[in-house]
């Protein structure tokens, strides 16, 4: 090391600030060799100039131009999760109360379901009774309107179809309403997400 100047690779090691066992003799040599010291200083000057080079900015409309060609796709599960989160209370106590109320509701529904399964005959009897009363009330109030709109055949079908017909119509209407509400909520969430 004492008898030769630094090799290009060794100058690079010093420029890159490498720290290791082999660097100490290089530094010692630079201390004592004016030629290598000058060469290292020259190289360091170039590196410093490079590191001071600024970033250039594209035009102000660059981001908008890019975004017009980027497909922003929101997966359904993200949208659904966000919708669910919106229903979750923000504060800890309110969240606790919400979870407790949901648990009690789930317990009641589960117990009712078990009871209905065990006492199916009684359940069917009460359900049929309730259905008859509902049907009577419905025909008393809406019989005329249904006959005018759909004809007397519709009234007869509903009257003779029993619980199954009423349950089918009701289920259909409930599903339609729920689907409309759900789709609307998903679209609203997606719009909000785009805005954030």
């Amino acid at each position: 090391m004492e008898h030769r100047h630094l090799l290009p690779d060794e100058i690079d090691q010093l420029l890159d600030g490498e720290a290791g066992f082999g660097v100490a003799p290089l530094l010692a040599h630079v201390e004592n060799c004016p030629k290598c010291r000058a060469e290292l200083a020259d190289a360091r000057q170039v590196v410093n100039a490079l590191e001071r080079m600024p970033h250039f900015a594209p035009s102000p409309l660059f981001r908008d131009r890019v975004m017009t060609q980027v497909q922003v796709f929101e997966p359904w599960h993200v949208s659904a999760l966000d919708t669910a989160k919106r229903w979750l209370p923000a504060s800890r106590p309110a969240r606790f109360i919400g979870v407790a109320a949901t648990s009690v509701f789930a317990l009641v529904v589960s117990l009712s379901a078990v009871w209905m399964a065990v006492r199916l005959d009684a359940f069917l009897f009460f359900f049929d009774l309730a259905g008859q009363r509902a049907r009577t009330a419905l025909f008393d109030s809406l019989g005329g309107a249904i006959a005018t709109t759909f004809g007397s055949a519709a009234v007869d079908t509903l009257r003779t179809g029993g619980v199954a017909a009423i349950a089918g119509v009701t289920s259909f209407l409930v599903i339609v309403v729920l689907a409309a509400v759900g789709l609307r909520a998903l679209v609203a969430t997606a719009r909000r997400r785009r805005a954030t």
Partner: peptide, 15 residues
Amino acid sequence: GREAAFRELLRRYER
């Protein structure tokens, strides 16, 4: 699918 995140990446790396 958050557009704001796309714009943030653009902001970070456009220069």
